[in-house]
Simulated scan of single mutants.
Amino acid sequence: MHAQPHNPALPETGAPAVNAGMPAQENTVLHGDNMKALSGLPDESFTLIYVDPPFNTGRKQTRAQRTMVRAAEGEGDRVGFKGLSYNTELGSARSYHDSFDDYLSFIEPRLLQAYRLLAEDGTLYVHLDYREVHYVKVLLDQIFGRENFLNELIWAYDYGARAKSRWPAKHDTILVYVKNVKKYHFDSAEVDREPYMAPGLVTPEKRALGKLPTDVWWHTIVSPTGKEKTGYPTQKPEGILRRIIAASSRPGDWVLDFFAGSGTTGAVAAKLDRRFVLIDQNPEAIEVMRSRLPETTTYSEA
């Protein structure tokens, strides 16, 4: 028996409404409480919503900014390309709080807003870790209906802690729900292909073409010294968002991320000719986005 989509009336707030049917005039970043900002956006105006909410680890997340500076031969604290010496300089740390006493009470009203804001052909991606994913899955079944559950994506990586008293946690989970399972947009032809894990078992033509990704994605994290690095502690790699945005939206569609963080969703959306609305209440996130997103992006208080 399928659960019925749960779509109760949402509370009204004093947030100003934008033009009916259009979430914004241009690419927009809103600074402030996402509940207030979401309530001012029009119904069914986004083809794609991606959110990477706090994981509820119970601690403050901090990442110091690291800069690699050339040093005299043999005098650096690490060796880089072609054996050259480098010193690592630590800059100001970026941080955010990742702890809620009742995580579901926090996330539920925001997911209800996501349901309201998705177009009939829209898709929601919710990026979580092992601590909360099973609870949020049940909640999303109630909001969207189990028949509208599309995928559980596993993003696997090999970086970070090396636990010896348990199996080390090396993956995140991305839950995928659609507004209407009979109408949602999905275009696998737009997704970057990847190498076969056993190339000797396929023809040369298939090896050259590559295969479509499955629901398990092997992708590195953002390199601490790579060109994507912003220094923001929860930054996700552009390759993960590129796959999501390419598959579940079209050029010109509106994309929403209301836990925007470092702005990866907006950066990728702009490169793929999508329009975006990003929301975050952390001033450090807004600072990072100002340096990363197209100059034409509009910034305002939620």
Rank of each mutant, 00 (worst) to 15 (best):
K182T: 11
G74L: 12
R70G: 04
L112Y: 02
S291K: 14
R193H: 09
Y159A: 13
A285E: 04
F259R: 00
T297N: 02
K229R: 12
D192W: 04
A208Y: 15
Y232R: 11
P204N: 08
I49W: 02
V126Q: 06
T123D: 10
S249Q: 06
V79L: 12
I49C: 01
E44L: 02
T57A: 14
K271Y: 11
A3T: 05
R166E: 05
S188C: 07
L10Q: 09
N87W: 03
E205Y: 03
D121A: 01
H2C: 08
A114W: 00
K182P: 04
Y157I: 08
K229F: 05
L128P: 01
N27A: 06
Y177H: 15
S248G: 08
N151A: 10
R243I: 13
I143H: 07
T220D: 10
L272W: 07
V51T: 13
S165I: 09
T298Y: 05
D273T: 12
R166Y: 05
T296E: 10
T67K: 15
A17W: 04
A247M: 04
I174A: 05
L150N: 05
E301M: 02
E194V: 01
P16F: 13
E44P: 01
Y96N: 13
P109T: 01
G239D: 13
V69C: 06
L140E: 00
V136P: 03
D158A: 15
G200A: 08
Q61E: 12
A20R: 15
F81L: 12
H6P: 05
V138S: 07
Y232C: 03
R207C: 10
A71T: 01
V79E: 14
P199I: 04
V133H: 15
A161I: 08
R274N: 03
V277G: 00
T234Q: 02
I240G: 08
D52M: 01
A260C: 09
R274P: 01
T13F: 06
D77W: 03
D215H: 06
D273M: 15
K164H: 02
G145H: 06
S85T: 06
E284D: 11
A114E: 01
V29D: 12
V51C: 13
Y184R: 00
A64H: 14
A119E: 01
V79H: 11
F259A: 00
P54K: 13
F258N: 10
I107F: 05
R94A: 09
P224E: 04
Y177T: 14
L111N: 06
Q65N: 12
R162N: 11
T28H: 03
A119R: 00
A72I: 10
T214R: 13
H134D: 07
V51D: 05
D187A: 03
I279A: 00
E205C: 03
A302N: 09
T62G: 09
A198Q: 12
R250L: 03
T13Q: 10
